[in-house]
Design a protein around this nucleic acid. Structure first.
Lengths: 256, 256
DNA sequence: TCTGGTTGTGTTTATTGTACACAATGATAA
DNA sequence: TTATCATTGTGTACAATAAACACAACCAGA
């Protein structure tokens, strides 16, 4: 019996990881946050090469792939019980040498299971920005939020994975009130609208947006206004889980 | 150099398949057809146990997973250049012993790579029923169409995979005119409506449906009626790819 | 030629989406 | 203290879309 294989030293991981993890299969997570009216993605910076990548991981031999994704999210953000959405599996045998040249992971000396071809299962998650503690893994120098439109060239096909995750998120936005996961418990209508506009990449009419959101009957206005802004203080709202459950039964559309 | 690993004898496949295929990874295809106003799925019947399963396959070590799925479709139906849609990856470590007990593949004597845990990547395809030549693989006694509501208990978690494929298909139906792939080049409006009703699992108003389909401006009515029916002969229509391309640029909604 | 089941077609109403303007607020600057 | 500015809060008229609905024509077979 050994300890958690996810605590192996880099050397042990490269030399013996194949004893604990499924070969050829990895997990990548696109973790979305919302801050300063911008949609952000959590990225890791590799040691040595200082190239950026998505937080990811591997699947233990007896582990559910969803649990492996949960683990990645928890280790990088400190968050638990966040809904992860599996959106696509990437299986091009040349995804390790796309438009950006061949990618050799840092710290690898000699042959390793990690140098084999990998098929990666992509997940996205929506998290509350302020609750996240970005935490690098042992191969990374840093873990940081990047504004979605300013993401640098990433390793492998990770830029493609981010793009596909955003497309999937946009589609989901019409079927589920996913956006609410990105906001703090109390939020203003302009914040909510800004979130939708950022995800969809288009501007929306203020009054019609408000009407639509109120009509969904899944948020409640509080007798409280957001103080501290430079202008008229907007009302605060909260997402109402009970109302949401009721609305789901009736079959509502969240399309904007 | 060897010949096509997909032509290995069963014995060689079980004993040496791991030399050619990625371990722990499989492909399953839910192949939809439409006939006699019914939505059908192509299934294989295992030799020996006579249990039914989805057509599937494995991924060659240097092969794109999409190509592996294409290969499965081609081998079972004889069809090429059909769009396959990857919809979900199933990674429960216990998917080989779900509600239906543990599943041992037929013909396996002694240990084999095939007895390990598998993560399977699910694809669906829409094919023209009349063009398909159902072709069993070497492990199967038969290959047949099953009406979607009469599918028997399948091996592993294959019933779950079919269910999820249908859900995915229903969602896609609102975004793309997928239904047309299921029909022959010339079809009648009642046939098209019946197809939509079958996929969606609900009845639709005849006049409103026709209006909607005509308004999409992607089908053309021919100066020809379908003969041979017992009643008033309905007009024939054809799907117009040029019009479809134009409509796509304008951004149309196919929702019913 | 009569009958039964089916196809072809248009209008009315209800619902939903879109466009749009002005008064109130609160901080800041004059 | 007052004026200014950017922002919030709110309702109505119009357009587009979706939903409900009925009758005449047709064809095969009795």
């Amino acid at each position: 019996m050994i300890n958690d294989p996810r605590s192996l030293s880099p050397k042990e991981f490269f030399e013996k990881g194949h004893n604990y993890f499924l070969p050829h299969i990895s997990i990548d997570c696109v973790i979305f946050g919302f801050h300063d009216n911008q949609l952000k993605v959590l990225l890791l910076e590799w040691k040595d090469t200082h190239r950026w990548c998505l937080p990811g991981g591997f699947v233990l031999k007896g582990e559910d792939i969803n649990d492996a994704a949960d683990n990645t999210l928890r280790m990088r953000t400190g968050l638990q019980k966040i809904i992860l959405h599996q959106f696509h599996t990437f299986g091009d045998p040349n995804r390790d040498r796309g438009t950006h040249g061949h990618n050799t992971p840092p710290h690898v000396k000699g042959p390793s299971w990690i140098m084999e071809r990998f098929i990666t299962i992509g997940y996205w998650a929506l998290v509350e920005f302020s609750k996240v503690t970005p935490t690098p893994d042992q191969f990374s120098a840093s873990c940081q939020w990047w504004e979605i439109n300013s993401i640098p060239t990433l390793i492998l096909d990770h830029n493609v994975i981010v793009k596909k995750a955003l497309e999937s998120l946009r589609l989901q936005l019409n079927d589920y009130p996913v956006g609410f996961n990105l906001l703090p418990p109390k939020f203003t209508m302009p914040e909510l609208q800004s979130l939708y506009e950022t995800i969809l990449g288009e501007t929306l009419d203020r009054r019609n947006f408000q009407k639509k959101m109120i009509a969904l009957d899944i948020i409640t206005r509080l007798n409280e206004r957001k103080q501290g802004g430079a202008h008229k203080a907007p009302y605060l709202y909260k997402f109402d889980k009970k109302k949401y459950q009721n609305a789901l039964k009736k079959g509502i559309s969240f399309g904007i």
